[in-house]
Structure formats: C-alpha cells, structure tokens
Design a protein around this nucleic acid. Structure first.
Lengths: 273, 273
DNA sequence: CTTGACTTTGCCCTTAGGGGAAGGTGCATA
DNA sequence: TATGCACCTTCCCCTAAGGGCAAAGTCAAG
C-alpha cells in the first residue's frame, strides 16, 4: 500500500492528476481510509495507470480512455478507434504544416522586402448569394461606375431590394488595362427579374483568400500583389473570376482616401504531385 | 455603421467572438450606444479584424495578438516572434509525428498478432539516485537472490537505510542464459560506505521506456519482447544497461503469480541520417 | 508530545469562446 | 400607433486536464 505521494513518485504521475483520475472514476485507489480520507494505492494498480498514460500519449482524451478501459471492447472496436485517431493526427499534422507554411511565408516576406506588409490575407468562406449583374467588355476601368449606374437604375425600376455591397467580377485570366471583361454585381433577394442587359445568377459558396485595401483605387495593385504572393506562397491555386467588393466606395461622396475595398480570390488547395 | 450581426456576416467572425474581443480589449467597436449598449462597427475596423484573424491562423494567442497590435513593435521583434512561432510549430509537428508513429505501431501490432498486447509501454524519466550494488558474473539467474542476500546483509551491518525497490542491471549486450553479468542494486540515502564487494555509485536521471510485468519470472521474456518491439517501432535506440525493478518480489513470501516487475530500458531518440 | 512532512477538500485559474435564458431595442408593417 | 419579429444586451455556466494555493487534518519519527 502506497500513499498518494509514493505512488506518484513510483509512476511519475503527479498526485494532483491521481486525485483527478480518482474523481472522474478513471483510477480509484485500492483503498480509501474512511476516517482520514487518505488514498492508498497498491502496486497492482500500476499496470492500469501505465495503460492510462500510454493511451494518453496516443492522444486519447481521459473520457475515451475511461471507455476503452471499462467497457472492455472488442479488438475490432479498438482497431477502429486507433484508425480514427490515426486519421485525426494526420489531419492535425497537415494543419500544422499549413500553419508553418504561413509563418514561413511571412518571415520570407520580411526578409525579402524588409518590411511587414500592410495587407493581411485571410481565408474564409463566402456565403452563396443570388446576384443581379451586368457584364460587359468596356474600354477601361473608369466605365465601372457607368455599369453600376445602369444596374441600379434597372433594379430601381423593378423595385428589387439589393443587399450587401456592390462588387465586380473580373473575367479576364490576367490583369489587363484595356478592354477588361467586367461584371458589375450586387446581391439581391432571391426572385425573378427579366430585363435586357441584366442577368440574375446564383453564386455558390466558395473558399476565398481575401484582403482589404484602404484608399484610392489607383493603389489597389499593391493589395493585388500582396494577395497573389500570399496565395502562391501558401500553396493555393486561383479559380477565376476574382471579385472586388466596394465596401465603401464613391457612393457616399467621401474622399477617395477613405475608400475600402476587399479583394477576393476563390482558391483551392494546390495538389502537389 | 454596422450592428454586430452585420459586421459578423461581413467578416465571418461570430458575434460571440466579436463581443469577446471587445471584452478583452482586442477590438473595441467604433461606437457603443450609451443607452442601449448596442455595439456599432465601421468598415474601417475590418482591416484590424482581418489582421487579428490572420495572426490567429499563424497560431498566436489572443494575448499575443493584443501585444502585437497595440505595442506597435519593431520589425525585428515581429521577426523574433515569428521565428519562435516557427520553432514551436516544428516542435509540435515532431510531437504529432511521434504520436502517429505510436498509433501506427499499435495498429500494426494488432494486425500482425491479431491481439492487443498486455504490455503498455510508456516513456518517462527516472530520477537520479545513489545506489549500493554488488556486481558479479554468476552461473545463471537463480543466483540473483543470493546477490541481494549479500547486499542486504552488508547494508544491515552498516545500518544503511535503503529506499525504493531493489533492482538489477544487466550489463550484457544481449540476453544470455549462462554467465550473465548482473548487478544487484538498491537505492540508498546518499552517504559513504566502504565494504569489499559493495559499490556505491550515482545513477543519473535518464529517459526510459518501461513496461510492467505481472506474474512469474519465467514469463518475463514476453514483456521484454513487447518492450523491445515497441522501442524499435517507435524510433528509439537502447542504451545499456537495462534495469529490472522488483516492485513486488519474493521478499513478501506471496505467490509467484503476484510478482510485479518493471523493465526499464534507457533510450535515446534514433537519429535518422 | 512535538514537529515536520504529507494529505485532504475546496476554490479559483487557465483558452477562446459556445449555449442558453431573461429581458431590452430597432425597424417594418397592419 | 401598436405589434410583431428579428436582433441586441448582460449574465451565468460549460468546456480539458489538471495547477496553485489555503486551511485544516493526519502520519510517523524522534
């Protein structure tokens, strides 16, 4: 019979942990003095404690270990749990490696440019939405306002409720100053409209990499650069078209310095063969 | 000005989290209505929130992010934090891979032997200790009792306090039935003794892989087998000598079925070149 | 008998919020 | 203007696996 401290030294498991295991019913002492409350363990309990520690190192929670030990389950069940654990660990490793990649990309960027980027790139989902849009190949970017003008005018005529911020989709494979293929979009309540020049379509939910640009549109290219670099360094592929969301644009008649624009690229994890 | 729900939709950060960030001072709303308590956010806060999310995905804690954002630190400091993070993630990945190895070893064992081993192998430290011992090359294992007899007799003569369980150290590179080189040991309070045939030495703290065998000594080899297999499958190298700790041995005059023995191999992580 | 080492229970603490209750607001509609 | 209804607020409890600390009780040796 060992007191808790001796058993703790023997097994190298803290007495706090031993008490906890007692509380949750994972390892009850062989004897508890009913007067003093002292816990007494025997050497026979060491194998069970060892098993607990071993399973803990495999990554099982104490809850799972309790089940594993008490509901003495079949070999097949144990095998199943191990396989699940295996898959889980593999997923975790992949996550960590992804994280490592991001940290390294950030470090590399600091080393190369000797500056920390003003753009923080984040991945997230965009919700699916129904949009009304006008798509056209226009001479240059200054015509975007015109497209939105036509779009909103038509929606107004039909009394269609727009929601969210207006955005454009760029359908060209690469950046081009001249004759870009632009689609001016706005999310709408889901309903049917018919009108020449206006298309209603549903955009599915997609995973995107996104960054926020604050300031005039003439400096947007820096944000594009940061975003593209990030995507390349973090092992993603771009899926066209990309979106440019005008979170705060010219509509408010405020200074161009206060414009806020979000750039979104739909992405998928690059498959390395 | 967005209410918390709108800002949440915009950023894909839950409003619960936004409130939490407000509480810990990480992201205060641009305006809080003093009457209703409603939080109002502006689009200008999106970059900061984005930065928070980005840093969170790098693995920083909210506490660290608060420091990173508010104590606007130098590029060198940021670089330092990133490097530390990098090292931490690399360590984590190594840990997970170790864990994966263990799970796979366990699965492999089930598949090969179609049974779950009775032996759970655990790694831990043994504390440094001062021991008294008698080392001898004896004809066979049955002489171990004799060695301990001499050891305890001598300690008794000198009134030396023994602590812990007696154990032996096997100095032979491999298992041999005949003429093994055996050292019978017992931990003692640190003091000087001189006596022919008895050695006092200090054992350093070492990392060990250990398992517990319950039952007669004739079946110890199964435990050895399980332990050796585990060590091989988990990428460790053995450092001699190994110890056999008699947690409950013949001294109590109980049935040999109740003997409890711990086998310890000092290990080091195998370097893969 | 005393002393010191050990043990007990109990409470609060840790991360990053999630879930839910009770009650107050804001906006659109009848 | 009254009323829904969706949204917002604070408050409290919960998570996993114990760690730290405090007050009080116990054990064993001298």
């Amino acid at each position: 019979m060992f007191k808790i401290g001796d058993f703790s030294k023997l097994s190298q498991v803290s007495s706090k942990a031993l008490r906890y295991y007692d509380n949750i019913g994972l390892l009850k002492p062989a004897h508890v003095d009913s007067f003093s409350g002292y816990r007494y363990y025997t050497i026979d309990q060491l194998p069970r404690l060892n098993r607990i520690v071993a399973l803990k190192e495999l990554g099982f929670s104490l809850d799972q270990i309790t089940q594993l030990l008490d509901e003495n389950l079949s070999l097949a069940q144990l095998q199943g749990m191990l396989r699940m654990k295996q898959a889980e660990i593999e997923r975790q490793i992949a996550d960590e490696q992804q994280r490592l990649l991001r940290v390294q990309a950030r470090l590399q960027q600091i080393e190369c440019e000797n500056t920390s980027s003003a753009y923080d790139v984040v991945t997230r989902q965009v919700m699916p939405m129904t949009i009304a849009s006008i798509r056209d190949r226009v001479p240059d970017y200054s015509h975007v306002g015109h497209l939105f003008h036509r779009l909103f005018a038509t929606l107004g005529e039909h009394q269609v409720q727009a929601t969210g911020s207006p955005f454009v989709r760029y359908h060209d494979g690469e950046h081009r100053e001249d004759d870009p293929d632009i689609e001016a979009c706005i999310a709408i309540e889901a309903l049917e409209i018919e009108h020449e020049h206006i298309t209603v379509s549903k955009l599915p939910a997609v995973q995107i990499a996104t960054t926020i640009h604050t300031g005039q549109y003439t400096t947007l290219s820096a944000a594009y650069g940061a975003l593209m670099t990030w995507i390349a360094h973090n092992g993603y592929d771009i899926i066209l078209p990309n979106r440019e969301v005008y979170l705060r644009g010219p509509a408010l008649n405020r200074s161009a310095e206060t414009y806020v624009t979000e750039i979104q690229f739909s992405i998928s994890k690059r498959v390395n063969i």
